[in-house]
């Protein structure tokens, strides 16, 4: 009874990991053509689009989105959802900003932000994995509670007057590259290695592909679910840190727009919402597309809602094109 699912799981795992490791999965990034075309078109037509200043600006926008979206990718790989990341970002950022302001230490504040994210993530994970609450309903509740707590402790005000080092770090460069981008690259590499080169990481694909089979195969299903939410919360806290360092302030509504943007990055990147398929580079390509179109259309002077319409159309056509090209390469099925 348990042999058949195990074989199927091993086949899925072997195929996914091999494809990703040897680079063919890179071709399965539906947003990659959109990113490439958008970059060329905007660079040729907009003065300064490819300038260091604008690329730095885009990198600062990209970093927190990519970090939060990578966290969400782990949850999506299981076919689940974490709706709380926006309010986790808000809550972590205001608590950490208070500490940063009162202690004068950017590092202590940073640790608090990540720790708050990890705590909420662990709570979400424990409730979903072991108490078997519905992730959608539970994280929706945490979304509402987290935002309300952030609002209560700040009275609605932003938390400012942070140490000058915070903004220096957030807006600064290391080796000519935006500091926050280095941080997001580090997160990307670590997440990629965990997913593809560790047993625990590979379990995300297996559990997401077929949870029942994974149970029969003796995989750590509940532990994997717990870890997904833990990672998602922790990276939401880290994304909050990026935003705070960039803005020099934190606020109770800071993460309000993050959830949709992060979901967009993960889904447009090609990670399967039903689980079992996707990865870090998929999400990175999705986040790149979101940020590049956002900045390019903004620089063109399009009104906000016109931008949204164009971005939506490009994403729809782009992902259709990418998906079609992929199916054509890999054959039917």
């Amino acid at each position: 009874m348990s042999n058949q699912p195990t074989k199927q799981l091993r086949a899925v795992l072997t195929q996914t990991v091999r494809r990703t490791r040897n680079g063919t999965a890179l071709l399965k990034l539906p947003m990659l053509p959109v990113v490439a075309v958008a970059f060329v078109v905007f660079s040729l037509s907009l003065d300064g689009f490819a300038s260091a200043a604008n690329l730095g600006n885009m990198a600062r926008l990209f970093a927190p989105l990519a970090i939060a979206a990578i966290g969400l990718t782990f949850v999506f790989l299981l076919g689940e959802i974490d709706l709380s990341i926006g309010s986790v970002l808000s809550l972590a950022s205001v608590l950490g900003a208070f500490v940063m302001r009162d202690t004068g230490s950017v590092w202590i504040g940073a640790v608090v932000m990540v720790a708050v994210g990890a705590l909420v993530g662990a709570f979400n994970g424990a409730v979903v994995a072991w108490l078997r609450f519905s992730p959608f309903v539970h994280t929706l509740g945490v979304l509402v509670i987290g935002r309300a707590i952030a609002m209560l402790i700040t009275g609605g005000h932003s938390v400012g007057h942070l140490p000058p080092a915070a903004v220096r770090f957030g807006r600064g460069n290391i080796a000519g590259v935006t500091t926050l981008l280095w941080l997001s690259v580090a997160v990307c590499i670590v997440a990629h290695v965990i997913l593809l080169y560790t047993v625990t990481g590979r379990e995300f694909f297996l559990v997401g592909a077929n949870r029942r089979a994974a149970v029969f195969a003796g995989l750590h299903v509940q532990r994997t679910r717990f870890l997904a939410f833990l990672i998602s919360g922790t990276l939401a806290g880290l994304a909050g840190l990026c935003v705070v360092l960039r803005l020099g302030s934190a606020g109770p509504t800071l993460g309000d727009n993050l959830l949709l943007m992060a979901i967009a990055a993960v889904v447009f990147g090609g990670t399967n919402v039903f689980g079992g398929e996707g990865g870090v580079f998929h999400t990175i390509s999705g986040a790149l597309a979101v940020v590049m179109l956002d900045k390019g259309l903004n620089l063109l002077g399009l009104a906000f809602y016109d931008q949204a319409v164009v971005m939506g159309l490009v994403i729809v056509f782009g992902s259709a094109l990418g998906g079609y090209l992929y199916r054509r390469r890999t054959g039917p099925g």
């Binding site: 300064g48 300038s51 200043a53 604008n54 600006n57 885009m58 600062r60 926008l61 927190p64 935003v243 960039r246 803005l247 302030s249 606020g251 509504t253 800071l254 309000d256 727009n257 956002d294 900045k295 903004n298 620089l299 002077g301 009104a303 906000f304």
Partner: peptide, 23 residues
């Protein structure tokens, strides 16, 4: 006039102001 709307997002607003500066 070059116009930008942050749609209640401080990050987006920061990015838009940075763009205006670089423009």
């Amino acid at each position: 006039m070059v116009f930008a709307n942050a749609d209640k997002d401080p990050q987006r607003q920061a990015s838009q102001v940075d763009s205006l500066v670089s423009q």
